[in-house]
Amino acid sequence: MLKKAGCQLLTVHGHTKEQKGPLSGAASWEHIKAVRKAVAIPVFANGNIQSLQDVESCIQDTGVQGVISAEGNLHNPALFEGWSPAVWELAEEYLDIMREHPCPLSYVRAHLFKLWHHMLQAHQQLREELAKVKTLEGIAAVSQELKMRCQEEISRQEGAKPAGDLPFHWICQPYVQLGPREGSKEKAGVRSKRALEEEECGKEVLSKNKQKKQLRNPPTRPSTPL
């Protein structure tokens, strides 16, 4: 149907509609492969991309013509370059871009929550400050403080090896979300992606649909009864 309607390239995200936010889990490359075999137009794959090696494996396993990434790329914007730089390098580069091309502060905060995710787990106070700060320079100050904390830890752990499978948390790296759990989200103690975003980004966050609605219908001043 999409092809007949004029679709020239199809991107397939290998999740069911229930698999979203904290319940996303692993994507099914087998289903992406099935779609690739079923259509004659180019197909791009989305899901389970956490490194450049995953890109190569996905293309080999599914036969798709291209790969895109969302979560993996947000946590490590250098993913498609095949390396994992220090978080503050990309955070500073991003903030420089935002000074030149301003955007809503909630967008900036959301991106930095992704970049600094692992470091913020170890520094809850700075996590709270990042959620509450009201200016771009305030956000930059929190980011600078996180950089200093990283460098202090690096100096203390020089020559040490990271514990477990997780690299040092000042390195850009993916965040692996847990898969679906039995029972309701409330029983499992898991909040929706929307709730997590609101907590991390403050009360400024609006859904894309609400933002578009506000642009179409700006709020008017309520009339005062005579």
Rank of each mutant, 00 (worst) to 15 (best):
E30I: 05
C7V: 14
V108L: 05
P22E: 03
L112C: 13
V39H: 04
P222C: 11
T220R: 15
E18D: 11
G189Y: 11
A110D: 07
S84Q: 12
S84K: 05
S184A: 10
P77A: 11
E153I: 03
Q124V: 10
K147P: 04
M119K: 12
M119W: 08
Q50A: 03
V39D: 06
P180D: 09
A122N: 13
L126F: 08
A26D: 12
E152Y: 04
Q53S: 03
E186D: 11
G14A: 04
L206Y: 07
H111V: 14
S223T: 12
L95A: 06
E100C: 05
E197C: 14
S24T: 14
E128H: 05
D54W: 06
L166C: 01
N48D: 15
Y94A: 02
N217A: 03
H123L: 12
R149T: 07
Q121Y: 11
T16Q: 10
C201V: 06
T11G: 09
D54M: 05
M98W: 08
R221S: 15
L112R: 11
V133C: 06
H111A: 14
S223A: 14
P218H: 02
P162N: 03
V43E: 00
A78D: 11
E186T: 08
P167N: 00
E81P: 06
A38Q: 09
E137P: 00
L9P: 00
K114A: 13
L196F: 04
S28F: 04
E145L: 12
N217M: 04
L10Q: 06
L52P: 02
Q121I: 13
H31L: 14
A131M: 02
W170C: 01
P162Y: 01
K17E: 15
V133G: 11
A163Q: 10
A86L: 08
A163R: 08
S28A: 06
S57V: 07
G25R: 09
A131H: 01
G159D: 06
C172Y: 00
P180H: 13
W88T: 00
E18P: 02
L130A: 07
V87H: 02
A40K: 08
E137S: 07
